[in-house]
Amino acid sequence: MKWTWFHRLGSPKWFYQWAERWRGKCLGLGIVLLVLGFVWGLAFAPADYQQGNSFRIIYLHVPAAILAQSCYLGMGIAGFVALVWQMKLAPVFIKAVAPVGAAMALIALVSGAIWGKPTWGTWWVWDARLTSVLVLFLLYMGVIAIQNAIEDRVFADKAVAVVSLLGLINLPIIKYSVEWWNTLHQPATFKLTEKPAMPVEMWLPLLICALGSYLFVAGIAMWRMQTEVLNRERKSSWVKEKVVDYGI
């Protein structure tokens, strides 16, 4: 097996050019899918027989929750890569994705609360999913906080890598423990997304929304990483040439 792609991916310059090509496509397709999924889900999908129209917030809540988890998964893996292979781009990835993931977790929390109001009659219920998203949000805040607290870049990169990896190792344990705790305390509450077999007209737009948000977030992440790469490599010749090209 050839490892050249791995090393090339580790090269900031190569990444920058690669992202330049793919970023726009990801963002464009992502937005198209998001619009399509939302319009379909909000206007055309059938209403839920139990929850009526309020269930439609699922098209926002579920993609956001999935993305929040996926982003953290990515950060944890990047943390591992940063610590083991010292790949230059891995900390850049963490730094770029953390705020995006935190925003997703926040969207999931807020939409969950809004959804909870008509469903349970209160804004907040200690539901397993909501609680683990809340903890996930706190984990994101930890990564962001330590990133901001450390001025030295080398140290900051190491620190966020350690924190992300630590969070990733703990995430399944936290999720499992929260679910276990939840069955202990409220065995029979109505779970937000636990549905017996959703009809196709309901889950297809959901799938499209999820796919769209993956692409959208990937595009945003590339964009943020590009900015960070430019900043970090500003002394290298290829960045200087680029700046000259733009005539700045």
């Binding site: 706190l138 930890g142 906080a145 330590i146 344990i173 929260v178 276990w180």
Partner: peptide, 16 residues
């Protein structure tokens, strides 16, 4: 900062 980083990780231990 240390409290913020670590306390969420204590949750499973406390729960079990």
């Amino acid at each position: 900062l240390m409290l913020l980083l670590i306390l969420p990780l204590y949750i499973p231990v406390i729960i079990f």
